[in-house]
Design a protein around this nucleic acid. Structure first.
Lengths: 241, 241
DNA sequence: CCTGATTGTTTGTCATACAAATCACTATAA
DNA sequence: TTATAGTGATTTGTATGACAAACAATCAGG
């Protein structure tokens, strides 16, 4: 599921570099990038490789190239904000509280609805996949094991909706969970604290109770958010002292 | 807002052509495309232009190029289903009932939540934008005017959430509305039938009543879906007779 | 039968050249 | 003075040819 593909190729490196510069705010919307020749030179690649990177950034809505003018950075509203790379670039530096709140809101919109939908239409295989992920969470020994299994659980729920459009929103959920993990630095002792929430979701989907599943998922997210607020408070206190 | 940019350039044409072939099912997941040289020849373009198109398709998750192997079409689950182009390509041929149902489900997930969020956090300017769109709908004389204003209304609601991640889902809403318009071929007489629904949403957002806004939006979508089922029935009857 | 080197195929990258679109400037005319 | 048409400079778009790198298949040796 992970995709470090882009990092391998040269144009992938270039894309990453430029993408981070733009999303990170080093070049602002409205500005135009240096011309391709000089940009290629400063990045130590050929114009060909640079152009392929620019094309992909253009597909992500970050820039727009026009003949005789150059590559202009587009307004944020044009950006493909749900793109996995764009999300990753936004989280590259420490994400702002504001952005984290928006990720939480997305989870609140997507996941309870997905849980309800999954409870309605899941197949036996899809339920088994969720169950497998749940057991992996239960048996996790390390934080890493838990993280992998947790992602697998939420992915399995999205898959169980049978709606590929909802499934494509996994990149958002993935980013959100990943961010929360780094921000709310769990200890080895309490990282399993949300297991009961997951069990409730699993059981509701097993019993095909959409509204129960929705509520259970809502509760899980609310709890996660509370946990986040708590460590946010700790962080502020630390910074202030 | 519309983006016929890609159609202008050569590589845009190539991307469109190949994208439609893949999404349309002419080449199936797992298959590998012809090698770049022959593909470029058959499409009457240089390898340069072809490669830029392939890179963009790769960024949309449709294909994966590997040295020595070729460009393999990826599984549907890898596709960037929320990408505006991918959505458009899926609707290029008459969309299946199945796909339309999934679009409806997406609207049910996104728009009521967005309406509620907008009611909570809208600014005066954002409310004004929604109001403007509503008036344009009210004063629309032709079906075209209505369509434009309707899209503007739903976009304004998403904008009013202040969450750019939600805003990026407009491509889904846009595709859904566009599809419904073509499928449920309205007459000049009744194309304004959903105006009262829109008014309720507008008023709830004006009064900052999240749950009222959510319910109103839900009702609007349910009504739209009923309308769709109706014309779906007519279409079947016609095809069966 | 299995293992490892070799060879051919295909994409990845580079360099160069020219075409096409756009912008900035200037000269001209009303 | 203002508007307009034209002209040249700038930048991206496209084409071509060449070679490097990675991979698959084949074949030799154990």
């Amino acid at each position: 599921m992970r995709k470090p593909i882009a990092v391998r190729s040269l144009y992938g490196h270039v894309m990453h570099e430029l993408g981070q510069r733009i999303v990170g705010g080093k070049v602002k919307p409205g500005e135009v990038l240096p011309r391709e020749e000089t940009l290629a030179e400063s990045l130590q690649v050929s114009r060909t490789a640079l152009r392929e990177a620019l094309k992909v950034l253009s597909a992500k809505g970050l820039i727009e190239s026009r003949t005789g003018v150059g590559a202009r950075v587009l307004e944020k509203r044009c950006w493909n904000q749900l793109d996995a790379d764009v999300l990753a670039w936004r989280c590259a530096s420490m994400p702002t509280d504001d952005f984290v709140d928006k990720l939480v809101e997305m989870r609140e919109v997507i996941e309870p609805a997905a849980a309800a939908s999954a409870a309605r239409r899941r197949t036996a295989e899809q339920l088994a996949a969720i169950d497998t992920a749940y057991r992996a969470m239960d048996e996790a020994q390390t934080l890493d094991d838990w993280t992998v299994a947790d992602l697998q659980f939420h992915d399995a729920v999205l898959q169980a909706t049978g709606n590929e459009l909802l499934q494509s929103l996994f990149s958002v959920v993935e980013t959100a969970l990943g961010t929360f993990f780094t921000l709310s630095a769990r200890t080895a002792a309490n990282f399993k604290y949300s297991l009961p929430h997951h069990q409730k979701v699993l059981e509701a989907i097993r019993r095909k109770q959409p509204e129960v599943a929705r509520k259970a998922m809502q509760a899980m997210i609310a709890d996660s958010q509370a946990n986040l607020q708590q460590s946010r408070g700790r962080r502020r206190k630390k910074a202030g002292s």
